[in-house]
Simulated scan of single mutants.
Amino acid sequence: MPEDGVTALVVPLPEADRLLAAVAARFPDAVRPVPAHVSLLYPFVPAEALDDRVLAALAEVFAGQPRFGVELGECRRAGGFVSLRPTPEDGFTALTGRIRRRWPDLLPYGGRFGSDVEPHLTVALNTSDETAAAVEREIVPEFAPIRAEVGEAWLIGFQGGWELRRRFDFTG
């Protein structure tokens, strides 16, 4: 569970919410209480550092970003982690690249998985190998592939639960 005051930049994928709801219905502890998304940068700056300057820099990062389509079909599993990879991933890698150039000292997941993390939709997390295998084998095929139109990024913050702080529409 994140600490209060943590923020993140994510791209919401409401088209995948039904998949996560199906996983949560069967394996409630495998799904985080946050809408389906691809993370651009977690953790981002602490909530107390979100000022007009940071928000203006974010607006600049997302300015001119065109909408793009993706398909989430390739399922990956490692231990108790299950994810879907978006293809093409160019839109996500371009966004994360711009964010990382603006905030080079902020590493995805605090550097826990290296300085670069492939874009992914987390389907199940911190669960047993058996549960992860069941999610991959029995639930994901009912929903994948998922096609989505990506049109915005969200700044979210954790304060006892995740909440939307700001939306950045892609208008390019």
Rank of each mutant, 00 (worst) to 15 (best):
A49K: 15
L41M: 07
A153N: 15
P28T: 12
G69C: 08
F81Q: 13
D51S: 07
R18V: 14
G160A: 00
A63T: 09
A21F: 10
E74C: 00
G64N: 13
Y109H: 01
V82R: 13
F92R: 06
E71G: 10
L9G: 07
A8Q: 00
E74R: 11
V6P: 00
A57F: 10
A30G: 11
I99P: 04
N126D: 15
I146Y: 13
V82D: 14
E118W: 05
V11M: 12
L155V: 02
V6L: 01
A132N: 13
D17R: 03
A24L: 06
V61C: 07
A59W: 11
V31Q: 11
R165A: 04
V123P: 08
L72R: 09
T127D: 14
R32A: 14
P86V: 05
G97H: 09
A49P: 08
L41W: 03
S39N: 15
E118N: 06
T131Q: 10
L19S: 13
P43M: 02
F44A: 03
D4N: 14
S83I: 08
G69H: 11
L72S: 03
R67N: 09
F168T: 03
D129W: 10
V45H: 13
L121G: 02
P43D: 00
R26S: 07
E130S: 12
A133I: 04
G111L: 04
R67P: 00
T96E: 10
V135H: 06
D90A: 09
Y42E: 11
T122Q: 05
P2N: 06
P33G: 04
D169E: 15
V61A: 07
P14C: 04
R98Q: 06
V11S: 10
P14E: 01
P33S: 10
P141E: 12
E152I: 03
P35V: 02
F170L: 07
R98V: 06
D4V: 03
I99S: 06
A94C: 07
P108H: 01
E142L: 09
A49R: 15
P12G: 03
A59P: 11
L58T: 13
L155Y: 01
L20V: 13
P46G: 05
G161A: 14
A124L: 11
P43T: 01
T171K: 07
A124E: 15
G73Q: 11
R101C: 05
L50I: 14
V117N: 01
F27I: 08
I146N: 14
E163F: 06
R32P: 02
D116E: 12
V135K: 06
G110D: 02
P141F: 02
R147S: 15
L9K: 09
R77D: 07
